[in-house]
C-alpha cells in the first residue's frame, strides 16, 4: 500500500512546486480580516485538493490503473492507498503552508500572519476527510471526468455554504431563537463540538472507504 502512495507522489513531483508557489501568494491574497484566521486551513485544503485531483488525472490520462492492477497488488490496497494519500497530502500542505507562514514572520515581511497551530491542522484534516469521503466513491464509480464536476460543486459549496447559511439564519430566524441556540451551544463543554465533528468525520470516512471498496472490487478495466 505504501508503494502505491509513493507512486502517487512520484508521478506528481511538479505539484509540490506548484504548492510552494501557491503558498507564497496565499498569504498576500488572503490577508484581509475575514480570511486571515483561516488562511492555513484554506491553503492546506487547496494543496491537498490539487494533489488528489492531479494524481487521479494522470491515472486517467494513461489508463494506468490497468498497469497498477496487473502488479501483485490487491484492489483493496489500491482503494485504501488513495485515502491514505489524501492524508499524506494534508501533511505536505500543512508543512508547506506552515513553513511559508514562519518564513514571512521571521523575515519581517509586513503581512498580518500568525504561526500555524494544532487547530489549523485538525480543521484541515477534517475538511479534506469530508471532501475525500464524498469525492472518492464517485471517482471510483464514474471515473475521473465525472468526478471532476462533483469536485467543482463541492469546492464551491465549501466556500459559499457557510456564508449563505449565516445570512439565511439571519433572515429567517428571529433574534430570540438564534440567541437560545447560541446559548445552548455555549453550554456544551469546550471539547464537545470539536470531538463531535471529529467523530462524524471519522465515521463518514470509514463508510466512504467501505463504499469505494465495494465499487472497486467489481470493476472491469
Amino acid at each position: 500500500m505504501l508503494n502505491l502512495v509513493r507512486k502517487d507522489i512520484l508521478i506528481q513531483k511538479k505539484s509540490f512546486l506548484i504548492a510552494l508557489v501557491y503558498s507564497v501568494f496565499l498569504f498576500a491574497i488572503f490577508s484581509n480580516e475575514v480570511f486571515r484566521e483561516a488562511v492555513y486551513i484554506m491553503g492546506t485544503v487547496a494543496i491537498a485538493y490539487i494533489m488528489v485531483v492531479t494524481s487521479n488525472a494522470y491515472d486517467d490520462k494513461y489508463k494506468s490503473e490497468i498497469i497498477i492492477n496487473s502488479l501483485p497488488v490487491k484492489r483493496q490496497a489500491v482503494v485504501l492507498s488513495k485515502y491514505l494519500a489524501a492524508a499524506v497530502y494534508v501533511v505536505a500542505g500543512l508543512v508547506i503552508v506552515g513553513a511559508m507562514g514562519a518564513v514571512i514572520i521571521i523575515s519581517g515581511i509586513p503581512l498580518p500572519v500568525r504561526y500555524i497551530n494544532l487547530n489549523d491542522a485538525v480543521f484541515a484534516f477534517s475538511a479534506v476527510a469530508l471532501l475525500a469521503s464524498l469525492y472518492y466513491p464517485v471517482y471510483f464509480r464514474f471515473g475521473y471526468a465525472l468526478s471532476r464536476m462533483l469536485n467543482l460543486i463541492l469546492f464551491l459549496v465549501l466556500f459559499f455554504a457557510p456564508g449563505a447559511l449565516v445570512s439565511y439564519i439571519r433572515q429567517n430566524m428571529d433574534y430570540g431563537t438564534a440567541h437560545q441556540l447560541a446559548v445552548r451551544l455555549q453550554d456544551l463543554p469546550a471539547w464537545a463540538p470539536g470531538t463531535l465533528v471529529l467523530a462524524a468525520v471519522i465515521l463518514l470516512t470509514a463508510v466512504s472507504a467501505l463504499v469505494s471498496l465495494k465499487i472497486y472490487e467489481s470493476k472491469d478495466f
Binding site: K7, I11, Y62, S64
Partner: peptide
C-alpha cells in the same frame, strides 16, 4: 499505460 511524463528509470522505480 505508463505515466508518460516520467523517464524510464523513474517508472522503473515505481514498479
Amino acid at each position: 499505460h505508463y505515466y508518460e511524463e516520467l523517464t524510464i528509470n523513474e517508472m522503473k522505480r515505481i514498479i
